[in-house]
Design a protein around this nucleic acid. Structure first.
Lengths: 340, 340
DNA sequence: CTGAAAGCGCTTACAG
DNA sequence: CTGAAAGCGCTTACAG
């Protein structure tokens, strides 16, 4: 079914049929009605590709690139993006990079080919010069050609609109709250240091402790996954020397793994050791004990980032930054240190 | 950057440039090299819309419609789809219907407009004549026009390729395992009865119990969400009469809510009451106690459904069905009934 | 193997 | 308000 067929059926020109269907220009009422009826009758569905090609408007798709949809953190943000997109009749093309930088760049390229109206990059970037250069090389021409880009949790790359969780401040505040609980001996379970999010949270936590004259303690690195947290916690327990009374995992996903590891090792949380995460993904409330964490409004962040991208570019070519405060929420997984 | 510009730069015709870039036809080596170089130089990215319009091949996008990406069940399946799609350089357009039937139909229509190569429908359909008719009206022309459709957990609608979890058999087997544990008094927390998945699991569970001469017990209906399970469990506890010794929630997501409700009410699981779910979403392993359930290979199901859609249509116009067995896995949330 | 030309299905100045 | 025509950026028979 093409527009031409509809036009013929309605006895008008294709131009009129187009205008009647899109409501762009005034069309005589009876013609409009006839065209609509013809379209219905024929089950006409406009070819979005032809529309995108012919019109200046661009098409109604938005690209969303994240590391992994099955990670609750990204799922939460993606959900916010989808909700907002649905309200504006936008279709979302979702790509999972599975944490491969090269795949991320490939996706941006595909999204450019699709002439996506906007590209959303979710999740910490890689602090890697080569990658940054390649990414800029993709994004810059896209933006110059009128594409819109917005990111979550990603600084330095490009000057694009950004939703930036206050990772540093949040981690610092968490540290202070933990110190207030009485802890003095800490350890941190961290992810790949080249991720800016990791660096920020680590720095913030260090900063918060430093305010009380306390050092960071042992830092164990693991993958940015449940398994990574599990393994890191095991390594921590296996280490020589006195055990910390409190462990901070830089993401809830890692904290979940850590909690399991502690349980397996017979370490009671919080009696023997306190544990806290970051993000407040929904599942941490279901754990026993429920996890203390720094809560981020994930769905809202998704809504914000797409809003940012879709809003007219700021007059000044400066990029906008929406800062998102994390809220420390202490739950059952943290308590005063043993013997206090 | 258009193909024409590349062709000019390389000093060949657009036709040759196209062929050189796509490798469809033999092109003299030196020309191919020149075209490639020109494309690189200019940062050429083909316009996917123009390609889709001009070529018979159709475009490289696949539509995936689910109820809610932030639900771990769908996230798991979606993840499998994305992984498989990535391997074939396909882009996935993901839509969340947020459980609104009309939105689902609207999305199919948008996906048709995009001329998506395939449309994947994930999750139980609605047993609603009007909706089914409308859906068929969208899908039929799409399929006739060469579109491919495959679904997960959805029978009756259309004759399309299907990945069908053995809900009924799985629930029945779970019932038997629970009976073997010693339970005689059951209750079920169920979702909207118009969802086929609910009906099947309920029927299977009933069937399994019937084999031991046991009745289904109280059936409490709730929304298909964590909150729905929470509320349903509360309602169950508030009900008159003797309490069941074992509760089956038709999905893990509901079971998670139920577990929280039981905990809040001071009902110990499994000492006072056993609890089991269905699906084996990743988080249930993290709970204390970890949830007994019927495990479904979610990621694999995602891979299967896209494979089904992409495979050449079966010669016989019959639709193919891939049956997925659920595996009963008993974990800490189920035990012998109290006083046994 | 290569190029000129038609065509994919729409939109949108440009006349009228 | 309406229509004829050009054009969006590609692909692909059709000749050569």
């Amino acid at each position: 079914m093409t527009l031409d067929a509809v036009a013929r059926e309605a006895g008008v020109s294709p131009a009129t049929a187009s205008r009647a269907l899109n409501g762009t220009t005034r069309v005589r009422d009876d013609l409009r009605t006839r065209v609509r009826a013809a379209a219905d009758l024929l089950g006409y569905i406009p070819n979005a590709h032809a529309q995108a090609l012919a019109s200046a408007e661009g098409n109604r798709t938005v690209g969303l690139i994240c590391h992994d949809v099955s990670d609750p953190y990204f799922a939460g943000i993606a959900s916010g993006v989808m909700r907002a997109a649905a309200e504006q009749d936008l279709l979302v093309m979702l790509a999972s990079t599975f944490r491969e930088p090269s795949r991320e760049i490939a996706y941006v390229s595909m999204l450019r080919a699709q002439r996506a109206r906007a590209i959303l990059l979710i999740g910490s970037g890689f602090q890697d010069r080569a990658w940054e250069r390649a990414m800029d090389a993709e994004l810059n021409p896209y933006v110059r050609a009128g594409g819109r880009v917005a990111v979550v949790s990603r600084h330095r790359s490009l000057r694009v609109d950004t939703v930036q969780p206050e990772n540093r401040a949040g981690a610092a505040e968490l540290a202070r709250a933990l110190v207030a609980l009485g802890h003095r001996e800490f350890a941190v379970l961290t992810g790949p240091p080249e991720l800016t999010t990791v660096a920020d949270r680590l720095a913030g936590f260090r900063e918060g402790l430093a305010g009380a004259g306390i050092g960071l303690g042992r830092v164990v690195r693991g993958a940015f996954t449940r398994e990574g947290g599990h393994l890191a916690a095991l390594r921590l327990l296996a280490a020589e020397g006195p055990r910390p009374t409190c462990v901070f995992a830089v993401t809830d996903v890692m904290a979940v793994g850590a909690l399991a590891a502690l349980r397996e090792a017979g370490v009671r949380v919080p009696e023997d050791m306190s544990l806290a995460g970051f993000d407040d993904i929904p599942l941490v409330r279901e754990l026993s004990p429920p996890l203390s964490t720094v809560a981020l409004p994930l769905t809202e962040m998704g809504e914000r980032v797409i809003a940012l991208a879709l809003r007219a570019p700021s007059a000044a070519a400066r990029s906008r930054v929406v800062r998102i405060d994390g809220e420390v929420v202490l739950r059952g997984s943290t308590a005063a240190p043993p013997g206090s």
